[in-house]
Every structure is written in structure tokens, then in C-alpha cells.
Write a protein that binds this DNA or RNA. Structure first.
Length: 363
RNA sequence: AAAACCUAUCU
């Protein structure tokens, strides 16, 4: 059941499960974990109901899965209900897995105070519970706070993991602290972690964001294995600093290296084309995006609208905008900013009216 | 026998 569920073959997993004369909490939990890993919250929750109907109670493992599911689905309400249930059963105090899952859930749902409270109340901490807190803070733009927690970790002698280093670098990148990033880089080299892909990629990003493009390129060149993240981090960095030739050299390279593009990579490359002010490159990428069926993906679609609008190519901006499966305040703002910056006051006003008609609240 | 943190990206 675990294998099928992990592979996403849920019909077979359920079938196997149904042939068991007796199911226990593990049989159900592995299935639930599979659903959660594949983002299927409703199915996971319905399993919980079914197992309880069979008279089987969820245990700590089960609750970790459920809490994670609530976080992934941004369902803070339900997460809170589950939290109450967990406390009632006395599971929380000593289980750092459950604690980390709750911190993740609250952070993702924007309940930062609650996340910190869970962290503070935990009897046991480990590097993951710290990392989860730090990651959440950084995701919400509190990089200084995150750095303070990272300092505390160091003071308490908690060894940094790859994830800890990654987030430390990310905090530096967000704050534009090249110096601190370089100090971390030295430590990373000393620990022999520089060839870790996640760390290498984050170093590329740090140096690119702090305008240290020679260093960024150097890290990139020295990586023995590169993935799509390595490429896009560098490309965006070059674009943001106006290095057109390097961008051109990198846009096509992932293909040539047999590295698959994903939706985020298209967003990055579109962003790069936009930074360079190139309508033709943008159109070229747009064609690829359509071929891959990604035009309607919200972030990809919004980026297309934004890029075209910034370029002042409003026929295309409008065309993509109209085709979006759901227009949101983000896509509207992107289009509107373009109108405003290119002096199209009338269109901007019409868009406000359209938002009103569609019940999209301006922010 | 099963569970937590995971790098590039949109206004």
C-alpha cells in the first residue's frame, strides 16, 4: 500500500487495502501519506473518516500527515481544529515531528504567532523544527528575524544541516548582505558542502541577487551537476544586471543540456526577457509556453501579462489576460500597471470597471 | 511496517 500510494497509484493502493482482513492504523496512514504527498487533501481527509468508522484512531504519524495536508492546502481553519485534537490526545509535547508539521502549517497559512507559540512550547527541538521556523519567517519576509534564530541555533551548538545553510544564504540574499553570505560560503566550503546542488544553487542566487555575477558564474561553472534551478538563477541574475549577451547564451542552454524546463523556469526566462526589454524573445518563449500547455498556469499566465504589459505590447497582454482561467487581482494589477506606465489612462479605468463587474476587489 | 524542514518564479 505504501509503495502504490507513494507512486500515486491510488486505485491499486485502495484495492490492496480492501483485501486485508484487518486494517490497522499503519495501513491507513501510509495511504493518507500518499494522498498528502500528491496534494490530495480531500481524499486524505476522507480516509481519516473511514478509518475512524472502522474504529481505528489516528496516531501521531497520521496527524503529521493531516497537518501537513492542511498546510499544503492553506487550510488554517482545519489545521487549527486538528491542533486542538492533537493537544487533547496529548501527542504534541514530546513529538518533534508533529511540532514541526504544526509550525509548517501555521507558517504557510500566515499564522506566524501561532507557529512561534508551537515552537516555544515544544519540549524537544531538533534541526528540522528550527529550520521550519526559519523557513516560514523568510517566506514571509522576516529575514532579520530568521537570522536571529539562526544565530541562536549556532549559539546552542545545533549543527547546521544543508537546509539550514540554504536558508541562511537565502536570508542573506533577501537582505542583500553579500558579506554575511560570503562568510557562510567559507563555512560551507570548510564543511565540504559546496557541491551540494541545493546549496550551490542558492549560492548562485545569492551572488546574482547581490550583483556579484562573476562569483555566481564561478559557482555555476564549478558545479559538477546542474539542474534547471542552477540555470534560471544565473539567467535571471544576468538579466537583472543588463548583461544581454550572457542571458542570450543561457536562455536556450537547458534544452541543449537535456535539462527539462518547467513552469517556474519559463517564468524566470520570461522575467529575464522582460528585464532586457525584448519583445521578440518574449514572443518566442510565449510560443514554447503554449506548446507545453502552460499558458493558463496562473503564475506563468500572470508573468506573460506582466511582461507584455511592461513592454507596452498590449494586444498580447490583453490576449493572454483574456484567456486566463481565472483573472485575479494579481493579473489585473499587472495589466493595469502597464497601462498606467504607458499612458493608457482610459484602458486603466475600463479595467477597474471590469474588475468591479467580475467581483475582483482592488488591493 | 508508516510521519516533519528543501534551492530558482508573478502584481
Amino acid at each position: 500500500v505504501d509503495m502504490y500510494a507513494k507512486c500515486g497509484l491510488f486505485v491499486i493502493a485502495q484495492e490492496v487495502l480492501s483485501t486485508f482482513p484487518i486494517r490497522n492504523v499503519v495501513s491507513w496512514t501510509v495511504l493518507i501519506a500518499g494522498y498528502v504527498e500528491h496534494g490530495l487533501l480531500d481524499e486524505a481527509l476522507s480516509c481519516i473518516e473511514q478509518m475512524q468508522l472502522e474504529g481505528i484512531s489516528p496516531n501521531e504519524f497520521t496527524f503529521v500527515c493531516i497537518i501537513k495536508a492542511c498546510g499544503s492546502a492553506y487550510d488554517g481553519e482545519r489545521g487549527q481544529e486538528m491542533h486542538v485534537e492533537i493537544v487533547k490526545r496529548g501527542f504534541l509535547k514530546a513529538n518533534v515531528f508533529l511540532g514541526s508539521a504544526l509550525i509548517y502549517m501555521y507558517m504557510r497559512c500566515g499564522f506566524l504567532i501561532e507557529a512561534q507559540q508551537v515552537f516555544d512550547k515544544l519540549d524537544i527541538h531538533n534541526v528540522v523544527s528550527w529550520n521550519t521556523l526559519v523557513a516560514g519567517l523568510i517566506d514571509h519576509g522576516y529575514s532579520e528575524e530568521a537570522l536571529r534564530y539562526l544565530e541562536q541555533m549556532a549559539e546552542k551548538g545545533i549543527p547546521f544541516s544543508i537546509v539550514t545553510f540554504t536558508y541562511s544564504l537565502k536570508a542573506c540574499a533577501n537582505l542583500g548582505c553579500l558579506r554575511m553570505g560570503q562568510e557562510l560560503h567559507v563555512k560551507i566550503v570548510k564543511k565540504g558542502l559546496e557541491s551540494e546542488l541545493m546549496i550551490g544553487n542558492t549560492l548562485i542566487d545569492l551572488y546574482a541577487k547581490t550583483a556579484a555575477l562573476i562569483e555566481a558564474q564561478d559557482i555555476f561553472s564549478k558545479l559538477s551537476v546542474r539542474d534547471i534551478v542552477s540555470w534560471t538563477a544565473l539567467t535571471v541574475g544576468y538579466a537583472e544586471h543588463g548583461q544581454e549577451n550572457e542571458v542570450l547564451a543561457h536562455l536556450e542552454s537547458p534544452h541543449r543540456q537535456d535539462i527539462a524546463m518547467n513552469d517556474i523556469a519559463y517564468v524566470c526566462n520570461l522575467k529575464a526577457c522582460g528585464s532586457l526589454g525584448s519583445t521578440s524573445l518574449t514572443r518566442g518563449l510565449h510560443v514554447e509556453v503554449i506548446k507545453k500547455g502552460l499558458e493558463g498556469e496562473s503564475v506563468v499566465g500572470n508573468t506573460l501579462v506582466d511582461t507584455y504589459a511592461n513592454l507596452g505590447v498590449f494586444e498580447d497582454a490583453r490576449d493572454v489576460f483574456n484567456k486566463l482561467p481565472n483573472q485575479t487581482v494579481i493579473s489585473c494589477n499587472a495589466l493595469m500597471t502597464g497601462y498606467a506606465e504607458h499612458g493608457h489612462g482610459r484602458e486603466a479605468h475600463e479595467l477597474i470597471d471590469q474588475m468591479h463587474c467580475q467581483g475582483i476587489a482592488p488591493d
